[in-house]
């Protein structure tokens, strides 16, 4: 895999998640960052920090990106969400337009 095809998402606690750009673009917010003509400084380095999103939530979101791609290609599985993270996950998803 090439570095330029990936993007690094950093959580509030400084944990890093390296995902395919294609997967990250499931999020409209990230898609806009990666494709806007002016280019955000963060995306030029291929790194986006989310100081408001905790590590377990950001990991769940990354899993969702890949689940979403699998679902779109016809693999119909369920996406499991633990009840205790539901609210925080919804807030993050809302922010990311995911």
């Amino acid at each position: 895999m090439k570095k330029e095809d990936t993007v690094k998402l950093v959580s509030a606690e400084g944990f890093e998640f390296v995902v395919d750009k294609k997967a990250a673009m499931v999020s409209h917010t990230i898609r806009n960052m990666l494709t806007s003509p002016g280019s955000f400084a963060e995306t030029q380095h291929g790194e986006v920090t989310f100081p408001e999103i905790s590590t377990p939530i950001l990991e769940k979101i990354c899993q969702y990106f890949y689940w979403s791609l699998q679902f779109a290609s016809g693999k119909e599985t369920e996406f499991h969400i633990e009840p205790e993270i539901t609210l925080e996950l919804m807030m993050a998803a809302n922010y990311l337009h995911t």
């Binding site: 400084g14 944990f15 390296v18 990991e59 890949y66 699998q70």
Partner: peptide, 16 residues
Amino acid sequence: AIYIRVKRHKITYFIQ
């Protein structure tokens, strides 16, 4: 078809 999560220290690589 699938992805795995490769982890070391504070970093996770999602690999298709």
